[in-house]
Design a protein around this nucleic acid. Structure first.
Lengths: 120, 120
DNA sequence: CGAACACTTTAGTTTCAACTAAAGTGTCGT
DNA sequence: ACGACACTTTAGTTGAAACTAAAGTGTTCG
């Protein structure tokens, strides 16, 4: 996944992008805002967004602050803004997220077996 | 997959939408234009686009003619147009499609075992 | 130093979208 | 009525993305 549009394929990543659209936020803040996902998963999404050039990162002490690189998004930026400012779209986004939360979209296991193998 | 943006998630569907953007085309024409995909798969994509309200369909004899419902796309339409008119994006799209063609993205089996079960 | 914190990376699991092959549906021409 | 055509639907497979848990990295501060 390397092109901007491919990165925006995921509703979760669009939600994260939205969180850092106007304000810079730390990874932990983003995690708290999403609530039903592990820190690791958030970090992975942030990495994807960063690699795709959609966000910029800045270290500040032990925190890492992210912000959307709106300049770099061109027409995609205005599309996202239009969508976010549209009440209908807010419903849509909500629906998408509920799908990925409740209805097991990507991975939502009840229980997990203890890891078998060693690690790295 | 029910919202416009979710439907456009797939590069293949964006390619199809592009084919019917200015001209109405029959499912078969679209299939011929894509070449490395089965008719069934094309039909499935067309259904998704139709369900999402991105294309309109019209029967004409035994053919089914599809066209993009540009009016209904709002800001998404202008994004797509900008992207398609951008040479850089054309490379991007090509790359995405090659990924999904060669590098086995979604399903590209060398051989297939004969179906086991009955049908419907 | 070392513990707490903030975050990333790794290894492994699960689900689902995109696909194929084949059967099904409807229309036209003879 | 029937065969050819144009397309859709169904049933099943698979690769990869999204996830989790746990280990790893780096920074601050007592």
């Amino acid at each position: 996944m390397t092109s901007p549009i491919a990165v925006l394929t995921s509703p979760r990543r669009r939600e994260i992008l939205r969180l850092v659209w106007t304000e810079e936020r730390a990874a932990g803040e983003i995690h708290r805002a999403l609530a039903d996902i592990t820190f690791g998963a958030v970090s992975q999404h942030l990495k994807a967004l960063d690699t795709g050039g959609l966000v910029a990162m800045r270290r500040e002490g032990r925190r890492r602050l992210y912000r959307a690189r709106r300049e770099a998004l061109g027409p995609v930026a205005s599309m996202l803004e239009s969508l976010w400012s549209d009440a209908l779209y807010r419903l849509t986004l909500r629906a998408e997220l509920e799908e990925s939360r409740r209805g097991p979209h990507p991975h939502r296991p009840r229980r997990r077996a203890r890891r078998t193998g060693g690690h790295r």
